[in-house]
Simulated assay, not measured.
Amino acid sequence: MTIKLITFDLDNTLWHTDPVIARAESIQWQSIITCCPKANTQFTPASLQQLKLKIAQQYPELRYKLSLFRIEFLFQIFIECGINKVKSRLFAQHVFADFLKARNQVEFFPGVLTVLENLQQDYQVIALSNGNSDLTTIGLDHLFHAHYHAENVAKPKPSDDMFLAALEYAGVEAHESLHVGDHPEQDIEAAQKLGFKTVWANMLQQQWPNSMSKADHEITHLNQLIPALIQYR
């Protein structure tokens, strides 16, 4: 069996996401209170969480649209601070831009650039991510043939949508494809159900759930992916 397509998750597969999001959230809050100092005393972590829940109930169509949901959340913060709608929209877009810039300042796991450059020579390589990272801003867009995420397909992983979009784009079957990701359910189990070969990217040294079928391979460094692919040539 020959592998022709390799799909990659991004967050916690090519970089550690938690510190990136924590920093981006901090920058976002500083941007909010720069636009509206009143927000610093008007909101608590609990009240902000309640606002998110309210938006989720009011706009269920934004459930999987992370960027649009965040912009609406920011807009509502400024509205509750008593700012008019026009200015609130402008502030929301400004703050979101600050967040997104920080969200795309990532530190690659060792070997990422070298491995992706090598894979480009022999495979179609497609990114599948539930997040809203921007490969162009990050500087990886030239190493992927396509990028599917929750905002340009109907549903995020573990739904089939992204995987099927990648298969259609590449013009291959699932048995000719291999998915690399960190999440047992959203990446490995979802890909297995469609017939993909799977690689668990265990960069953060997690324990595999005992109740789930293991991936075909486990790697703790992206360089280990290259030898794992030899058997599929």
Rank of each mutant, 00 (worst) to 15 (best):
F69C: 11
Q205P: 01
D11H: 05
W200N: 02
P158Y: 03
K38T: 07
N202T: 07
T44M: 11
V86T: 11
L135R: 10
P156Y: 10
T34Y: 09
D122R: 11
D141I: 09
F99C: 06
P110S: 10
H145S: 12
T220E: 05
P45Q: 09
C36M: 09
Q224V: 01
H183N: 11
P45M: 05
I188N: 00
Q192D: 00
L48P: 04
K197T: 01
Y232V: 03
L5K: 04
H221C: 08
I3N: 04
I33W: 09
V86L: 13
F109A: 02
L48V: 14
E185A: 02
A22E: 13
E185R: 08
L53R: 14
Y232T: 05
P158A: 07
K85H: 09
F43S: 08
D187M: 05
P184S: 04
Q206F: 05
V180Q: 01
Y59S: 11
S129N: 08
H175T: 02
T13I: 03
T7H: 02
D98E: 15
K193R: 15
Q76P: 03
H147V: 05
H94T: 09
Q207L: 14
E72P: 02
F99V: 03
I71M: 14
Y148E: 03
E117R: 10
T114C: 06
H221N: 14
Q30L: 08
G181W: 02
T41I: 10
L90G: 00
K85I: 11
R63L: 12
I219H: 06
T17H: 14
E189I: 01
Y123Q: 00
A102M: 15
L128S: 01
D182R: 00
A97F: 03
N202C: 05
S177V: 04
Q49S: 11
I27P: 01
I71A: 01
D122C: 06
Q120L: 06
G181R: 00
G131Y: 10
K193H: 03
G131C: 08
W15K: 10
W29P: 06
Y148P: 07
C35N: 13
H142R: 12
A22F: 07
L53P: 03
R103T: 05
V199M: 00
P158T: 03
S47D: 15
K54V: 06
F73K: 11
S159F: 12
N84A: 10
P37E: 10
I188K: 02
Q50P: 05
Y232S: 04
V115S: 05
L143C: 14
A228K: 14
A174N: 05
Q57P: 06
I138W: 12
G111Q: 07
A92L: 04
E151Y: 04
A166R: 05
A97Q: 14
I226D: 00
Q28S: 14
M212V: 09
N223T: 09
H147K: 11
D182I: 00
W200Q: 03
A191T: 00
I27Y: 07
V95M: 14
L135H: 07
V199E: 01
T198I: 01
Q224Y: 04
A146W: 12
H149E: 02
V172L: 07
T198E: 02
L5A: 06
I71D: 00
L113A: 03
E218K: 11
H221V: 08
E173P: 00
Q186H: 13
V115H: 00
N104I: 12
F108L: 06
L66N: 08
E25S: 12
K38A: 12
P227D: 07
